[in-house]
Design a protein around this nucleic acid. Sequence first.
DNA 1: GATTTTCATCATAGCGCTACGATTGGGAGG
DNA 2: CCTCCCAATCGTAGCGCTATGATGAAAATC
Lengths: 347, 347
Amino acid sequence: MNEVAVPRKRRKIQGVTMVDVARRAEVSPSTVSLYLRRPEAVSAKVGDAVHAAIRDLNYVPNLMAGGLAAATSSVVGVIVPSVRNAFFAETVAALQRDLGQARLQILLGHSEYDQASEEELVRTALSWAPAALVIAGTDHSPSTRRLLESARVPIVEVWELGGVPPVDMAVGFYHEEVGAAAARHLASRGRRSLVFLSGRANDDKRAARRAAGFLSAGRELGLPVRHINHPAPATTELGGILFSRLLKENGVQDQVGIGCSNDLLALGLIFEAQRRQIAIPDACAVVGFGDLEFASSCNPALSTIKPFGDLIGSEAARLILRSLGDGEKREHSIIDTGFGIVHRQTS
Amino acid sequence: MNEVAVPRKRRKIQGVTMVDVARRAEVSPSTVSLYLRRPEAVSAKVGDAVHAAIRDLNYVPNLMAGGLAAATSSVVGVIVPSVRNAFFAETVAALQRDLGQARLQILLGHSEYDQASEEELVRTALSWAPAALVIAGTDHSPSTRRLLESARVPIVEVWELGGVPPVDMAVGFYHEEVGAAAARHLASRGRRSLVFLSGRANDDKRAARRAAGFLSAGRELGLPVRHINHPAPATTELGGILFSRLLKENGVQDQVGIGCSNDLLALGLIFEAQRRQIAIPDACAVVGFGDLEFASSCNPALSTIKPFGDLIGSEAARLILRSLGDGEKREHSIIDTGFGIVHRQTS
DNA sequence: GATTTTCATCATAGCGCTACGATTGGGAGG
DNA sequence: CCTCCCAATCGTAGCGCTATGATGAAAATC
């Protein structure tokens, strides 16, 4: 005996669907879909009718349905250690700007320098079948790396080159070279001993690599060189603290050249020197990293090494868009965006 | 005549689907789904089998399919003017931290203080059928507001209270009061004339409101008060420029109290004062806004007004989670997170 | 021992959209 | 006037998952 199927109660997701638009424009849903994806493929008359219907009904397409059907979504997962960090914020901003042109959105995650939460974020991002993935650094946990390798999407690792080979593509620069450049610069300014100040070098692998580059370049130059690190994040306050510690341990030693793992640290150092009436750059020269926006206006103006965070973002976006256009062929491009030495008054 | 249907060629999205997991665990797909959503609802034996299958196959669920079927997604759209702005970065970080606990992801957009792109971002965010929406400010274009009003999701407007009534919920503080507090504080420190320095007050409505509050409080106090704005973003460099302009126009006038639309501006002012040997706070007192991390360590340490950006984020997250839990009843909560006056050496 | 209740598991019908191939209709060529 | 062709439009079958109600077995009640 065949009962007539009772229609189930279904929750309605959306007020207005593509079917409603199609009905209103008196075309088929396929045509509406086509108009949305390739407007040039429908005739002007039909296009206008669909457009009008969309406006009238205030239709908002459902990208989840679209993504599911099309087997790929229009999000790009972006995973950085921290958005509060100005460096990554700049790259994220550039990414959104350039990817937005191609109607790609950013699904953001920050790991707070924790590998376990990084893995979680990668897993989540992949759950959205993203069009691409951007992730800071190349140093991931083995299982994260496996996840990335088995994902069939373009992946761009940013802000770091060298070390582990990239999973797919990479845009960044060599942090050891940044450290080395700072050390050489200080030596060229007549400094006879070198110190590198850093925060959180245990978690922030890139800061650690800058430190390593600084130290080995210093040794190559035959100069005495030491490294003072503190597990706390590299803030202005920590800059003052580390400088104080240095002074206590070494006395006020003239002609020292100090590299800082970022400009915030350098700024704190400058403030502390002001308080202690230590002359910069005479008694002590300083080079920062980042060229943060206060660097040019502080007092004395901070010599620093400038990464091109915006460029990293836009190059990453370019690689992604090219990958998506090219279809499947992975090129494994690696782009070195380099860095600039900005010589101001502290060195 | 009935032809046998030829199976179409379908692109395969995913390597491993829930069906594969089910087959491997020798249960039905429904059970796998149930295990994923409510692990306590399946027996321990079956749960373990499913878990093992997921591990072995390295299964990553497809959240688009899930969201489509469940009529809601696990993303929260977050739209801010700029992530490069430390204020919003802090709130975004708090949001991700707290929403992440409930397995919600952040779909980020920044409008660069442009209303048209804000609307575009809202539209895109809504296309993902988000679980909620967080948007900075209450001042949106009419069509954006309409979009927000017709969206059936919890919406939290952050960083601004007063002005236009919120669409749904709001977490923030009154910027006029911040300005007024700065003016009153400077007056209480014996300042007989007041100036407010700001950048980009035409685009940044919140800065404009702080300026307005400062000016009217100053007038209420019977003090001469002026406002100097520059259309460029409020940076350290601009702080020096605006201060120079003030000095040129007014001469070095003792006892002036200066409010700045943010700490970056104040920092630039301090640097410029150092260069010109103008004593702070004697000749000129300064109050900033933001309590950015250099404020406590700069020299002299900066008096400032501290918004609680982290608290804004976590309160917004709390409201969202409560809304999602409560089902449909909208409460239109408005939370005033207030601000703190941090009195240091510049005033 | 027979019945009811509970609990764990399953089968099914879509969620809203896109890709694919099929269909239509009008102009060009014969 | 009849093909043929191309462009514009349409019909259909899922994409992978979840919500719902159904099923059967075990536990609890009579």
